[in-house]
């Protein structure tokens, strides 16, 4: 499944200088796994040591915080959009 991921300009270095990329997965967690396989070092930015989403970021699926859904097990589908921002940008 083709999912679009967007980050703010300040986080372009996560995706080799692009503020958007696509990924594949059945869930948010699957998409994160797909991304961390492709972009070395990304895992430490997105996940904590226990594999939970880092407290330093907020992840949105089609505009909604995944914490208001099923977190990393939230299902995704073709055409969905994931956005990631630093925590403080949401405050």
């Amino acid at each position: 499944m083709d999912i679009m991921i967007r980050v703010p300009p300040s986080l372009k270095q996560w995706f080799d200088g692009s503020d958007e990329t696509s990924c594949h997965g059945e869930t948010i967690g699957g998409c994160i796994g797909n991304l961390t396989d492709r972009f070395p070092g990304l895992k430490d930015r997105l996940l904590d040591e226990e594999g939970n989403v880092s407290e330093a970021i907020i992840i949105f699926l089609n505009g909604d915080n995944i914490n208001t859904m099923e977190g990393q097990t939230t299902q995704v589908k073709d055409g969905d959009e994931i956005s990631i921002i630093p925590l403080a940008a949401g405050g």
Partner: peptide, 22 residues
């Protein structure tokens, strides 16, 4: 605007109570 991110006021307030991370 392409970047879609909605934050509820409840979520915001919960980030700004004493003891919360932000």
């Amino acid at each position: 605007v392409k970047f879609k991110a909605w934050v509820s006021e409840r979520e915001t307030m919960e980030m700004w109570v004493p003891g919360a991370r932000l």
